[in-house]
Design a protein around this nucleic acid. Structure first.
Length: 894
RNA sequence: GGGCUAUUAGCUCAGUUGGUUAGAGCGCUUCCUUGACAUGGAAGAGGUCAGUGGUCCGAAUCCACUAUAGCCCACCA
């Protein structure tokens, strides 16, 4: 073996080997499939801790299932990420002094594809560095041809089913990105704002003297005075007696002179503000609904980039919204309309991408009706067909699904799936701009099909594609992501992959995209495939910044700095463990060389040669320690499988770690050094080592592969990836070898005795070089047989045995093995020791008292399980014995 | 406002249906280098399991309330 492990070289070498030899790729066959689709990261992205956590969990599950013999598919890919990608390219253009409009749609898209070709591979490359065993031959992109076909079909089908519609709606509008945002793309943040109290004069009232300009007015409070020119009413609560007399009257909208009605609506909260609200239907979602109920006009006073338009009035037209706010406040004040200003803390929505303040704005958008899709998706989780792990996340899922809102799916971007909806050109004579004549929309998967529909609808056979205008908008990125589990397997074609791997088995993701992604995939899967897209939804934590807050790009805390602190520690644990594995492997190799096992066949087969013919424990000379490690290996295999079945990834890691470090290295390797039967022990060490390597492989793929080859467990061309995941020994084997729990416990007890003597040596400050006289009180013949190993491990000059229950005046510790005594040899500071013993006695007295009370309680004896009662009795007796010995010692030191 | 979750050693966290004197890693203290491994080994200190009450023979674990923190949803003009 090499002296040191070269991680860099091994990682590069083995990843290349795995990928080139198709180790990640399998084709449908007769076995049980195990399939997982990766949550596609943004193609613009770089790998962060969240990805690493998410993908590591998946890799562990996938490698484990693959070794178990399942036909495994882990499907990778990236997301085209509409806004994010477009932003990146637009920024690059800006450096050249250009805007996307300068290039035009087609040229701009070419630029984006070029960018994707050049830089989009970054994250894919990083995923390889992680060691992901994803099937790169099936890599997909949410904007590739197949996904686009799936998107067009889905949109068309939903439209035909009446589940997609176009509507006037108030949307969250990001003025910087120039697009509508879905509700969940808006982040609400606390804001220190103002409440401007504004007087709206009642029509007919007289203008008064200075300081009290109008005799009669209503006072409204607003946080957004710039929307005032868009007001079309003021509203009060119908139950509000204070203002009942005003309902039906008309007030003057300040600065405009326009007259607007006073209406009453339940939406108004009597307690909040003045109890009177200005209604601006085109610029507030609630006002929009109120306006609909009362048939109010919707006056949109802003442009796409949040400047005021001509409807805002000549003076304000062209102003930026904040500028306009200032101007309007000044004008209100000057006109005597501003009563006073109050500070207020409220919440303001920001774009999740660029962090610009979101504006509510009236526009025409495409929507998906979600309720009909949500119902079966709720049922699938309720019935247990799909399970959340941990289960509690289902509550959050239900909560959202049951209150679901229609999904705004159109985005005013260029980079994305173009909406497959077409209208006839003005010059085709069908639509007349500005006439209000109903637009006829033709939705179809392709332009040709749309044309056919148009011909049929108009009866005009002479129409050509050139007469069609495609909707300029694109679809929300999630509109392709929600099809991911089946679009990536070939849908809408009926492929073998789709038939075999769908529904996928596990979906592993963080809690923050349960709504964005998981819930929508459930809906799409059930609707289009008639089956939910996965059986288990495994939710893991999100990686948080040091202060516990969620990491996000806009907060600027997503990069390494925050992570390094936590991670450095974890990284060190991993690195130290790797070294430990490497050194243990070197030890094994040395032992084998000492035995003269030179060829790898000799080494590999030593264990089976030794053990295979054994049918009774008497046929083979295994020591208690040999049998102990075989039992521990068996236990570890069973435990790890069981733990992973329950998705307890971290616990699995601890179990393997403990098996390797504590059981193999600290325990068995120490024994093997002085084993009386080296040939046997080294063969056993090799076998448990091989089991440990395979148990470790899902967690540490590279080092286990490298060690497996350097130690000759595998021949050239083989890989640990495709070896069987260890299940433990068979019952027949354990019976034949005498591998029992009883023996396991015996060796544990022996080690406990050794630890006890070491502790006594430390307590009495016996120098390491000094050999001591040790006495063990036990009647166990097996214990006596272990005297040689005890002598060495305890650094004992001699080990003597006395009958159990013997009462010697020496420092002692009680163990399951028997009471161990350390001979003093006059090494002790009597006064200090007497003090220590007194403290010890006080502690024990407390325990004995409470134990006695417990055992005196009839209910405890009657109701507690027998083992618990027996254990309590044993502990009490043990501690009483300890007290007796300490008292004896106390006299000795007195 | 509605919902969810957390609070255990200096730090990061386990603790699987309630049952030995509550664990791990890091950090800390003491000691040990001709040893496969100092990226190591041995021993040790450190916790009234956020608080209060309740159920039970028995509570870190179940229930109620309180405090603190975090997340999600909805939002007040």
């Amino acid at each position: 073996m090499d002296k040191h492990y070269d991680a860099k070289a091994a990682e590069a070498k083995w990843y290349k080997f795995w990928e080139e030899n198709g180790c990640f790729h399998q084709d449908p066959d007769g076995r049980e499939p195990y399939s997982v689709v990766i949550p596609p990261p943004n193609v613009t992205g770089i790998l962060h801790m969240g990805h690493a956590l998410n993908q590591t969990i998946q890799d562990i599950l996938v490698r484990w299932r693959r070794m178990q013999g399942r036909n495994t598919l882990w499907l990778p890919g990236t997301d085209h990420a509409g806004i994010a990608t477009q932003n990146v390219v637009e920024k690059a253009l800006k450096k050249e002094g250009k805007r996307r409009q300068d290039l035009g749609r087609e040229k701009f898209l070419e630029r984006v594809w070029e960018w994707k070709k050049q830089y989009g591979g970054t994250i894919v490359h990083q995923q390889r560095m992680l060691g992901n065993s994803t099937d790169w031959r099936r890599e997909r992109f949410t904007f590739d041809e197949g996904c686009s076909r799936a998107v067009a079909k889905v949109f068309t089908q939903l439209y035909d089913e009446g589940l997609v519609y176009k509507g006037n709606y108030i949307v969250n509008w990001c003025p910087r990105c120039g697009t509508a945002l879905a509700n969940d793309e808006v982040e609400h943040e606390p804001n220190h704002g103002h409440f401007w109290y504004v007087r709206y004069p009642v029509v007919g009232s007289l203008k008064g003297v200075k300081g009290e300009p109008y005799k009669d007015y209503v006072m409204v409070a607003t946080t957004r005075p710039e929307t005032l020119p868009g007001d079309t009413a003021v509203a009060v609560n119908p139950k509000d007696d204070r203002y009942a007399h005003l309902v039906g009257k008309t007030v003057v909208l300040p600065l405009t002179g326009r007259e607007i009605p006073v209406i009453s609506d339940d939406y108004v909260d009597r307690e909040f503000g003045t109890g009177i609200v200005k209604i601006t239907p085109a610029h507030d979602p609630n006002d929009f609904l109120v306006g609909k109920r009362h048939g109010l006009a919707e006056i949109n006073i802003m442009t796409d980039d949040a400047h005021m338009n001509e409807l805002a009035g000549e003076k304000y037209c062209g102003m930026d919204r904040w500028e306009c706010r200032k101007a309007i406040v000044e004008d209100l004040d000057a006109g005597g309309f501003l009563d006073h200003i109050e500070d207020i803390d409220n919440q303001v929505g920001h774009c999740y991408r660029c962090h610009e303040t979101v504006e509510s704005r009236l526009s025409k958008q495409w929507f998906v009706k979600m309720k009909p899709l949500a119902e079966p998706a709720i049922a699938a989780v309720k019935s247990g067909e799909v399970k959340f792990v941990p289960e509690r996340w289902s509550k959050i899922y239900f909560n959202w699904m049951e209150n679901i809102q229609d999904w705004c799916i159109s985005r005013q971007l260029w980079w994305g799936h173009r909406i497959p909806a077409y209208t006839l050109r003005v010059n085709a004579g069908i639509r007349e701009e500005g006439t209000g004549k109903r637009e006829e929309v033709f939705v179809a998967e392709t332009a040709e099909e749309a044309l056919a529909k148009a011909k049929k609808a108009t009866g005009n056979a002479a129409l050509t594609i050139a007469d069609l205008d495609q909707d300029p908008d694109v679809l929300d990125t999630w509109f392709s992501s929600w099809l991911w589990p089946f679009s990536t397997l070939g849908w809408p074609e009926k492929t073998k992959d789709l038939e075999y791997y769908y529904p996928t088995t596990d979906l592993v993701t963080a809690q923050d995209i349960i709504f964005f992604w998981v819930a929508r995939m459930m809906m799409a899967g059930i609707h289009f495939m008639k089956k939910p897209p996965f059986r288990n939804i495994v939710i893991h934590g999100i990686v948080r910044a040091a202060d516990g807050s969620k990491m996000s790009k806009s907060k600027g805390n997503s990069l390494d700095e925050c992570d390094t602190k936590v991670n450095k520690e974890k990284f060190e644990i991993g690195r130290n463990f790797t070294t430990k594995i490497w050194n243990a492997a070197k030890f094994l190799e040395m032992q084998e060389q000492a035995l003269g096992h030179e060829t790898s066949d000799e080494r590999r087969d030593a264990f089976s040669r030794l053990m295979s013919s054994v049918s009774r424990p008497e046929d083979i000379s295994l020591s208690a320690d040999d049998r102990h490690i075989l039992y521990a290996a068996d236990l570890a295999c069973r435990k790890v499988n069981e733990i992973l079945e329950a998705y307890r990834i971290q616990d699995g890691a601890l179990a393997v770690y403990d098996f390797f470090w504590t059981q193999i290295c600290d325990g068995y390797v120490e024994y093997v050094k002085d084993s009386p039967n080296k040939a046997v022990s080294v063969a056993i060490l090799r076998d448990v080592f091989w089991k440990a390597l395979r148990l470790l492989h899902p967690y540490m793929p590279f080092v286990t592969e490298e060690v497996a080859h350097q130690l000759g467990f595998l021949k050239e061309g083989e890989t640990i990836m495709l070896q069987e995941f260890p299940k433990g020994y068979t019952d027949a084997e354990k019976a034949a070898w005498g591998v029992t729990e009883e023996n396991y416990e015996f060796v544990n007890a022996k080690r406990e005795a050794i630890t006890a003597i070491r502790a006594l040596r430390a307590e009495y400050k016996v120098p390491p070089a000094t050999f001591v006289k040790v006495t063990v009180a036990t009647d166990d013949a097996k214990a006596k047989a272990e005297v040689e190993s005890l002598k060495k491990a305890m650094r004992a000059e001699s080990v003597e045995f006395v009958p159990a229950g013997s009462d010697l005046a020496m420092p002692s510790k009680i163990t399951k093995f028997g009471t161990v005594y350390l001979s003093l040899e006059g090494l002790v500071d009597k006064a200090a020791e007497a003090k220590r013993i007194a403290g010890e006695l006080a502690k024990l007295a407390g325990f004995i008292k409470s134990s006695e009370a417990k055992l005196a309680n009839e209910n405890f004896v009657a109701h507690a399980p027998e083992v618990v009662v027996a254990e309590a009795r044993r502990k009490l007796a043990e501690n009483k014995e300890k007290v007796a010995q300490l008292e004896k010692l106390a006299k000795l030191f007195a």
